[in-house]
Amino acid sequence: MGKTKKLIELDDKAIAILEVQAKLQKRSLKNYLEFMIEDRALHFAEPSEEYKAMMDDMLERQKNGTLETIPYSEIRKKYGF
């Protein structure tokens, strides 16, 4: 997959906020912006075929009554929440 350069303009307040967030994640501002934009773009992408197959399998097991689940209260007990 190729890369494309784009020029963006943000106000100074937004840049200051983003710089703080980038430092908290030990990233450069450029790297942080690229990461955030690519991560957000993936939210709009169609799920992979593997994910669709996994979800179809889980839905089928739920329909057949063979899907094993753990109640949230048990997870809280196990991990001390």
Rank of each mutant, 00 (worst) to 15 (best):
T4Y: 14
L7Y: 08
M36G: 11
D56M: 06
L7C: 11
G80R: 04
E9P: 00
Q21H: 07
M55A: 06
A16F: 05
S48V: 03
E74W: 10
I75E: 02
Y32R: 03
M1W: 02
Q21I: 04
A41I: 00
K30V: 11
T4F: 09
S48A: 00
F81Q: 14
A53G: 08
E46G: 03
I75W: 11
L7F: 09
M54H: 12
I8K: 01
D12W: 04
D39F: 11
K30W: 04
E50M: 08
P47R: 03
A14R: 11
H43T: 08
L10N: 01
K63L: 13
K5W: 07
E49A: 11
K6E: 13
K77Y: 08
H43F: 09
L10W: 02
E60L: 06
Q62N: 14
D56V: 04
A14V: 06
E19Q: 09
E50W: 05
L67K: 03
E9C: 04
G2W: 07
K63G: 01
M36L: 09
I17Q: 15
A53Q: 14
E74K: 15
M54R: 10
A53K: 09
D56W: 02
P47L: 07
P71I: 02
M58E: 10
M58L: 14
E34F: 04
E50R: 08
P47K: 06
M55V: 12
A22Q: 01
L42R: 14
A14D: 12
K52M: 09
M55E: 10
N64F: 01
L18C: 03
L42H: 13
E74D: 15
A22Y: 00
E68R: 05
I37W: 05
A41V: 01
E46M: 07
Y79E: 08
S28R: 04
Q25N: 12
D12H: 03
